[in-house]
């Protein structure tokens, strides 16, 4: 099934859509969940929850991109589960990307009071559009897919140090943009 057929099956409440979702996006979603949770077992449960979530939300949702839709739900569920599993804030390899994003705010939690979620998403899209393509891919792989530095470097043929520097500069640029808008 292609995306449109999966969407049509979901709308028709055809349960084969779940199998098709798993076949088409299972690998991506398991990868995201495993990167965040660091556990195959947790990742599997998270992916199953993703299919249930999609089943419940389509319709009325009609996602433009099933890749992004499924991946976003998995990411959200995995992050929630990670927070639940790590209430003691202990750092693990899987938590490092989240900690890197936290460092942008330097502990400030006022950003959410000064900008609503939709505006923040717009800001991030504008920020991403302003990055060169390679840095954008590195940034998204790190903070959307939650890939490790090693995975990103292997995927893009870059040295790990290069990936680390690109991420550092991108985070600095994002922080400056937040500061410029007086959000920090």
């Amino acid at each position: 099934m292609d995306d449109r057929e999966i969407l049509a099956a979901l709308i028709a409440r055809d349960e084969t859509a779940i199998t098709a979702l798993d076949a088409a996006y299972g690998r991506l979603c398991r990868s995201i969940a495993r990167n965040i949770l660091g556990s195959d077992e947790d990742a599997e449960e998270c992916v199953n929850d993703t299919w249930l979530k999609i089943w419940a939300s389509v319709p009325p949702d009609e996602p433009r991109s099933l890749t992004a839709y499924a991946g976003t739900i998995t990411r959200r569920l995995a992050i929630n589960r990670w927070h639940a599993n790590h209430a003691d804030c202990r750092q693990t390899e899987a938590s490092i990307p989240l900690d890197e994003l936290d460092a942008i705010l330097h502990g400030s939690d006022e950003i959410s009071a000064r900008i609503d979620r939709a505006e923040l998403i717009d800001l991030l899209n504008t920020f991403l559009a302003g990055l060169d393509r390679q840095t954008r891919v590195v940034f998204v792989r790190r903070y959307w897919n939650m890939d490790t530095l090693a995975d990103i470097s292997a995927r893009l043929g870059l040295r790990e140090g290069t990936v680390r520097v690109k991420l550092h500069r991108a985070r600095q640029k994002l922080r400056k943009e937040l500061e410029r808008r007086d959000l920090l």
Binding site: L28, R64, S65, T67, A68, Y69, G71, T72, R75, R76, I79, L98, L101, D102, I104, L105, I111, S112, R117, L120, I121, L123, L124, N125, L128, R133, R136, V137, V140, R141, Y143, W144, N145, L174
Partner: peptide, 19 residues
């Protein structure tokens, strides 16, 4: 972190590009 949360909703174009 609200950035972590908002990153989950970025333009699918960038996700497809990275994918």
């Amino acid at each position: 972190n609200p950035i972590t949360d908002a990153l989950g909703e970025i333009d699918p174009t960038y996700i497809a590009e990275a994918e």
